[in-house]
Nucleic acid binder design. Sequence first.
DNA 1: CTTGTCCATGGAAACGATTCCATCATGCTT
DNA 2: AAGCATGATGGAATCGTTTCCATGGACAAG
Lengths: 356, 356
Amino acid sequence: MDKRATIKDVAEAAGVGVATVSRVLSGGSASPRTRERVLAVAAQLDYRPSALGRNLRQRRTGGMGLLVPDLTDTFHAQLAEGVLACARAAGEPVVLGSTAGDPEQESELIGMLLEQSVDRLIAVPSGDEDTWAPAIRAGMTVVFADRLPARPSSDEDDDPAATAVNDLMLLDGVSSGSRPRPLDAPSVVADDRAGIRTAVRYLRGLGHRRIAFLGGPGHDRRAAAFGAAVGAPVDEELVVFATGSRDSAYAAASGLFQSRPDLSAVVAGGNVLGEAAVLAARELDLRVPRDISLVMYDDVPWAELCSPPLTVIAQPGRDMGYRAAELVLRSGGRRPRGVMLPTELIIRGSCGPHRQ
Amino acid sequence: MDKRATIKDVAEAAGVGVATVSRVLSGGSASPRTRERVLAVAAQLDYRPSALGRNLRQRRTGGMGLLVPDLTDTFHAQLAEGVLACARAAGEPVVLGSTAGDPEQESELIGMLLEQSVDRLIAVPSGDEDTWAPAIRAGMTVVFADRLPARPSSDEDDDPAATAVNDLMLLDGVSSGSRPRPLDAPSVVADDRAGIRTAVRYLRGLGHRRIAFLGGPGHDRRAAAFGAAVGAPVDEELVVFATGSRDSAYAAASGLFQSRPDLSAVVAGGNVLGEAAVLAARELDLRVPRDISLVMYDDVPWAELCSPPLTVIAQPGRDMGYRAAELVLRSGGRRPRGVMLPTELIIRGSCGPHRQ
DNA sequence: CTTGTCCATGGAAACGATTCCATCATGCTT
DNA sequence: AAGCATGATGGAATCGTTTCCATGGACAAG
């Protein structure tokens, strides 16, 4: 009914021009007298500048986009909470999208954000670099969180492990140059290599030799780190990938347990995979940690609820989100190359000594 | 670099006026010949209309806001996924905010949305009706999900005049009683009364007589339903409330178990409370279900992981989000009064017969 | 006293869409 | 054949803000 006051209303009521009001409100120069009057009138009229007008004029929307594969994955929820906390502190809106791990939906959402002139984006990417190139080319400031887009599928070498090794080398700056450079976007990731390595060493210290890795989409780095930590001849059957869904994760875990009864320990690459592993183990009457030891990547509240409580590799999900938001907001001028946060092995009760 | 094409570019390239382009693109009338040419040119220029211009002209932003207390509460994540699914289908953006259960933050976020001219909002409210009245008065279409805002705290020292004014604004018809009518906003809730009733009956059927309710913010309805189901003289010590945080939930659960050793069953009002109950029980060496039976409101993936798996009252979180989004989008003309979705008691293993 | 500098200020032009309205051509009715 | 209805079309106004630029006054230096 009573539509909001515009800058024009304020200007008239204060007996000044709109330009002056705009200047006062955005910190420009004005005489103390004028400033005071304008502020008083604005407050009295409960004037709030419309983001619409400003955005159109400045040809960009404030705030940021956030794209995650699945909010019911607790890690993504933690990440999102971190992003929201930072955005709230800055008074900026966050436009959220969930991609279900599908590059096509991801592309569509990028398009939607482009249409909204949202030019800052935080993403846990599902698509590969080809999916992301358009966004960056369109001038978006993109910060990747948790993982980087995969290299474009170059037909013959779509072996995840091999691709991951490539990523790893490139990240370390050891790239020998035949592949194109990664996209020019900073990232906030956890040091999952170290986390996985620590976990594998821990398991080996307990006597485990047949250790499997249960991964999901985007866990290539972790799989590669697993391979490196386990040692040279990796039994390929022991590295299993699921697609994003819980069903697929369960099927992968169950299949792994059934096909490899010699298995004595599993590293799950994420909390959804860990969940599936616990479920599948119970279904097959495998006792944790008596029959099988389990380490899960991601610390989530329910990890403590399992019996026994799950030993996990914790990564600071909330912090990662917060840092990513900081990065994408302070994109003035130079962008730092990226941030890597530490992981921590939290030993609870899901790993025991190897028994033959 | 290469900024996006505007409607003017398309118009020039197609040799028509901007009005014609606009009409063609938004389904207005145009001759087949013109339509074809405009569409061809638009496609060739990769033209995408800017939401900024449209929104300013129409004085409203498309899409919707979504306010939840905490995304790491799995139920809220499910709800959000539902909202996002519907929004994606409609091609509309979703602006997300998390309130941490704090009415003040909620108010600020409402203000931010108002500034963005987001005039559709789905909320799991934390504040009371006084918090929400401004949003509705400002013309927002609000749909509440999961719960309704509490009645305003009618403190005895409230300024009578102010209260009267408030009442007047809230009233949308003739006031027949002393209380103002609820806010005029539809809602999507689960039939938690029935769910709680079923759970209590189930527990009583197992022989339990000392049953407690462990609630969190916004669980008043559930607490009331619990009281009604348990029967007339409700032991007030057996209805305990926590604030939003996990720590508070744990403290409440732990305190309850310690102060009432005669307790034989607990109904947790939400998954965060259930989590706390499991944790507190384990800490105090109470075995579930031997020493204490537990029913948790909300079905979440990890409920099956506990040992024993948790008996839960399931509510369709994702559906609720989807329905709420539908409701807020199809707000053309009449709004249905609200939707209530069924709950279901899923019996797993956390309840056993009462043993003295 | 004049000239030049420096602010404060307001008018007006963007920004990119939608939409009202006037114009014009076409085809039909009388 | 004239008048009228219909439909396609483009010009221009509009949304609310920021920002460029011109104006005018005050004050200091010459």
